[in-house]
Write a protein that binds this DNA or RNA. Sequence first.
RNA 1: UGGCCGGUCGCCAAGCGGUAAGGCACGGGCCUUUGGAGCCCGCAUUCGUAGGUUCGAAUCCUACCCGGCCAGCCA
Length: 561
Amino acid sequence: MPDTEDKPIQNFIETIIEKDIADNKNGGRVHTRFPPEPNGYLHIGHAKSICLNFGLALKYNGLCNLRFDDTNPAKEDVEYVESIINDVRWLGFDWENRLYFASDYFRQFYEYAIQLIKDGNAYVCSLSTDEIREYRGTLTEPGIPSPYRNRSVEENLDLFERMKAGEFEEGTHLLRAKIDMASPNLNMRDPAIYRIKKAAHHRTGDTWCIYPMYDFAHGFEDSIERITHSICTLEFEDHRPLYDWFLDKLGVFHPQQIEFGRLNLTYTVMSKRKLLRLVEEGYVSGWDDPRMPTIAGLRRRGYTPESIRKFCEIIGVTKSFSISEISLLEYCLREDLNLRAQRVMAVLHPLKVTITNYPEGTVEMLDAVNNPEDESAGTRKIPFSRVIYIEQEDFMENPPKQFFRLSPGKEVRLKHAYYITCQQVIKDDDGNVIELLCTYDPQTRGGWSTDGRNVKGTSHWVSAAHAVDAEIRLYHHLFTVPNPEEAPEGKDFTANINPHSLEVLAGCKVEPSLVEAANGTVYQFLRQGYFSKDPDSTSDKLVFNRAVSLRDTWQKVKKNV
RNA sequence: UGGCCGGUCGCCAAGCGGUAAGGCACGGGCCUUUGGAGCCCGCAUUCGUAGGUUCGAAUCCUACCCGGCCAGCCA
């Protein structure tokens, strides 16, 4: 039954939060956080989490922190923290003065660990890495207690202190929680709390040579910041009992962990590890390659923060595993840019057209609407002259009935200019069409006629004498299959990489006004798509990225011809 | 074969015992100086399967099937 009143759809997390507010839990306070590890660039999957966490804070009049979960110096780097800060800000979110680092809490974590030892809830284990794995048991068999499990509090305190002092080599000792080696949840089989790592940390230098594990640290990070709702992805569901265990043992403020399903997209991969491989193995030019699902890549390609936020809003938040179609993301971009992008004319595959009855040496400045969706965008002047370029695709020598562009003897409209009729086709020795000789109707200036003529086709064009050369990069799916994870036997996702995902067009002809455009500006190239000016552009070489093409009904019609 | 979580249209997703929202995609039509945009119409007699409870079930119960995650001193 259709609901007459449109009550906003709330996701399951909002349901929990609204109940908590109603129950006056945490005094009705809502405080979330986005906790990335600075070990890679943010991707669209992170954007979902960012929009969720910051969005919830906004919706419920709460706060959202940006916190770096930097507990593993071996993998982390300042380059990543800088890119993450930049990306979250670009997406449009504000953490005010609440930028935190887990590493700022290292001293506190250390004291929590001491307390755990004193209470008999943690011990130093001196088993090797391999032995620990063997003692852990399997999915179906319980583990075996470590022989070091019952060391005295004094001995544990001494050993832990010496771990911290750097007396031991990596891998020789480990601080573990004393929980239950027979738990069906492997995370509860005496998990590691602190490991020895003699690596310099990007923020604390070599102050420490022991570093806390995620499970131990994360809950305390949330607790210290008085987070009310700690939102993470589904794979941490099995860790929740541990999250709760640490907080309960120390008796500190206890945030609620809530898990949701992470974003997956067709025709791409979404794990930092896999994206890193694409970068390191040279499949793409870098983290900001426009084919990458990274925020940096999407930004360079021409995606707007608004379109990404809209996407994150409409995909929803649930606990089920899902793979969203990339076409939905593309739809969000088109929807946003349609309203805002300035229209401009650019010819990707130029075909020379000489208008034989147009006076030589004459240049007319014609009016062109900048954006039919936005009158306030105004108009601009574009030059028209005797020789122009049109799109090769806009001419067919022997067209099917449904083709209403240019062909011998037929008339079309040049957008904003005149009607032209094709009189003669000039070919090279190989039979390729290299030029069209056309005539124009002076009475149709601006593209109108008063005699009721039905000219259905409209082509974009540029004046040959005024056009500027440009390189245009077209992007196709990075992978050839919707789910790259499904690789052939014995192969991994790289077997599904699309070798033709980048198509570079040289010698494209664009409107002269684009020379002055700032890098990053996104235009609609009339009838073709949305293109962003790439930072590779220089004063004498323009480069554009196709962010997304326009819907192309003709392509569909063509298939059925 | 252990534990946890999940299965509603091709994809995403509402629904919370009263008789299947919406979006994307797709198909058709209108309109159009972008074959763009916009507008209109169509698109699950059925909710993983099988039983059961009930006047009534996608919603409750039971069993089974399928999918995801977990055996890092990663997060």
